[in-house]
């Protein structure tokens, strides 16, 4: 059989020498970009990207968007409807609902990004340990099973109630239930690449364990972790809102969407907007993250994509 040499062309496609049936696909980079562009042409994906971009821009530029201090109390104008001074009215303390919704975007994105970063980092570390060091595996995975069997919202509620609500404790409480899922994902990737020829070659060349893990094994987890990360991001935003809504989340002085909905409960019949405005924005944000997560999954994990 002739040796097969693939020479990438300038346009990124692979020129095939030898038996063409043995070469299955073009260089991933070219396929990825063109697929990304084609999926952006679909209206739902475009809308999702638009919504998420708006939320991010609003969060970054909150002080420039005609907002006033979101925690400034004004007893003189409590529970007002829509007006030129208060675009979305005011709450029971006379705070401006529009400003609170805008600043709430900041809180949600910080919580989402923070919890995602923390759970991916922790999950990656523990997952690599479990996947590579067989002795640690059994113990780690039993602990993970135990954490996974506890409904995540209950675990988070219990953690917050014990440590008291602050941004950090809420972040930790959201992170812990998400970690086992990341650990399982990383572990399965590490287990499956352990027997790959290039890993065995690296081992037989005497590569040290840290180099082996970082250079040859961990890069394989990047694509699945990006996909998982988008779902963790959405889950974290939802959990924060749920915790705060139940009164077991962020301290009430932080203007988060969940806190606004929680405070609005008593006045729902009078001013439904107190709950519906933050609620609808929350739903739109989660929707766009989930849609974009599906797109990423389809691009990065073709096997899963075919299934759904």
């Amino acid at each position: 059989m002739p040796a097969i040499v693939n020479q990438p062309h300038a346009d990124g496609n692979v020129q095939m020498l030898g038996d063409p049936s043995l070469i299955v696909h073009a260089t991933p980079a070219a396929g990825f970009t063109s697929q990304l562009i084609s999926s952006l042409r679909s209206p739902p994906v475009f809308v999702a990207l638009l919504i998420l971009s708006v939320v991010i821009v609003v969060a970054l530029a909150a002080p420039l968007l005609g907002t006033i201090d979101p925690v400034a109390i004004d007893p003189g104008s409590r529970l007002r409807g829509l007006s030129p001074e208060h675009w979305l009215g005011t709450d029971a303390f006379g705070r401006d609902t529009y400003s609170r919704v805008v600043y709430g975007a900041r809180v949600s994105l910080i919580v989402g990004a923070g919890a995602t970063l923390m759970s991916i980092t922790l999950g990656l570390l523990i997952g690599v340990l479990a996947g590579y060091f067989r002795a640690a595996d059994a113990i780690i995975m039993r602990v993970m099973d135990g954490i996974m069997a506890i409904p995540s919202i209950l675990l988070a509620i219990a953690l917050v109630s014990l440590t008291g609500g602050s941004l950090l404790t809420v972040l930790v409480a959201i992170t812990i239930p998400e970690v086992p899922r990341v650990v399982r994902l990383v572990r399965s990737v590490i287990l499956s690449v352990r027997t790959e020829p290039y890993v065995e070659a690296a081992i037989s060349l005497g590569t040290r364990v840290p180099t082996l893990l970082v250079r040859h094994m961990v890069p394989n987890t990047v694509a699945p972790l990006i996909v998982q990360g988008t779902y963790v991001f959405a889950a974290a935003i939802l959990t924060e809102a749920t915790l705060s809504f139940l009164g077991a989340g962020l301290p009430p002085e932080i203007p988060s969407w969940g806190n606004m909905m929680s405070e609005g409960r008593m006045y729902f019949q009078l001013l439904p907007g107190l709950i519906l405005y933050p609620g609808i924005i929350l739903a739109a944000t989660l929707l766009s993250v989930n849609v974009l997560g599906d797109v990423l999954r389809d691009l990065l994990d073709p096997k899963m994509a075919r299934k759904s």
Partner: peptide
């Protein structure tokens, strides 16, 4: 899948 239960409930 995306709209939280409590938002649906209030709607």
């Amino acid at each position: 899948f995306s709209v939280p239960t409590f938002v649906v409930a209030y709607l």
